[in-house]
């Protein structure tokens, strides 16, 4: 009887939330899956079912493959910078935990993560500017001739990676600082007694113990890396009269196919690919953790 009353209360309280979720999450996700099997040009009344034709076309579509490639490079590139730098800086901050400055360091590294992206990207755009930017001015001090950061196909991708990493590092530092703080101190002391130096203890004790944190930060960084859009939009957008190389990324290609090429179904199939990647990454994270838990 009591259980039944509680169940009724729970359902009554949950129902509105369930309705909202169904409305703004379940249904649109289902629509994406459904539309990926259809052809629709945004303005016509009919939406013929075309099976997997969109997906077939995707894998012969060079713009999509470029976007997929760029996005993957950006995601893993960001990861490659974020993890070591984040872990290193967090270790140093952790070492100086007693200092008055620790809080300042932590907060400062975090600011890039919270500032709105567009103004931040604007700042980076100027830094990378081939003719006016301080980066080339700085490099010229070492006799390096100016590089065209935002125009070169390889360099422009690197620029996006730097911007993404700049934002992601603060988050990684924060999580790692918590991780370091939660490491059992006696393990370090034991290592020290065995004659290990601070650096050795860091490498052989802390890094392995932090594996779950590293895994978590990696997956979060990768997933947000695969969703990169605003960074590329501002840094390398195709504004009229403002030449610069467009770094084609998945979300950009998706929006362009939907709202510029009027191929909503085709864009939905791109979204499904993106979804598959994200699910795969999450799956990898869980299975690695489970494996570790089983041991």
């Amino acid at each position: 009887m009591l259980a039944r009353r509680q169940w009724l209360f729970a359902m009554a309280a949950l129902l509105p939330i369930l309705a909202i979720f169904a409305w703004v999450r379940f249904y649109p996700i289902e629509e994406t899956l459904r539309m990926s099997l259809h052809e629709w040009n945004l303005i016509s009344k009919t939406r013929p079912f075309i099976g997997f034709a969109n997906f077939q076309e995707l894998f012969g579509d060079e713009l999509f493959l470029t976007a997929l490639f760029n996005t993957t490079v950006i995601a893993f590139g960001t990861l490659a910078i974020t993890i070591p730098v984040g872990m290193g800086i967090a270790a140093l901050i952790n070492y100086r935990l007693g200092s008055r400055l620790a809080g300042v360091f932590e907060t400062t590294t975090f600011i890039p993560y919270i500032v709105p992206l567009v103004p931040a990207a604007m700042a980076w755009k100027w830094i990378f500017d081939a003719r006016l930017g301080p980066l080339n001015a700085f490099l010229s001090l070492f006799g390096i001739s100016p590089l065209s950061w935002l125009f070169d196909p390889v360099l422009s991708v690197i620029c996006v990676i730097v911007l993404c990493a700049w934002q992601a590092i603060g988050y990684a530092v924060l999580i790692y600082v918590v991780g370091f703080r939660n490491l059992p101190t006696n393990v370090f002391e034991a290592a020290k007694l065995d004659g290990a130096s601070g650096l050795q203890a860091f490498w052989h004790v802390a890094v392995p113990l932090l594996r779950p944190i590293t895994l978590y930060v990696s997956v979060v960084t990768l997933i947000s890396g695969f969703n990169v859009y605003a960074q590329a939009y501002v840094l390398a957008s195709d504004a009229q009269g403002a030449p610069g190389r467009q770094v084609r990324v998945l979300v950009l290609d998706m929006l362009e196919n939907s709202f510029r090429n009027y191929r909503v179904g085709y864009a939905a199939s791109e979204a499904v690919i993106l979804l598959a990647i994200v699910l795969l990454l999450t799956l990898v994270q869980f299975s690695l953790l489970r494996e570790r838990g089983a041991r």
Binding site: P146, F151, D238, A239, Q240, G241, P243, G244, Q246
Partner: peptide
């Protein structure tokens, strides 16, 4: 290094 291009041909930018 090129300081003034002889003819600006629009080699990059909006597709």
């Amino acid at each position: 290094n090129l300081t003034v291009s002889g003819w600006s041909m629009r080699l990059s930018g909006g597709g």
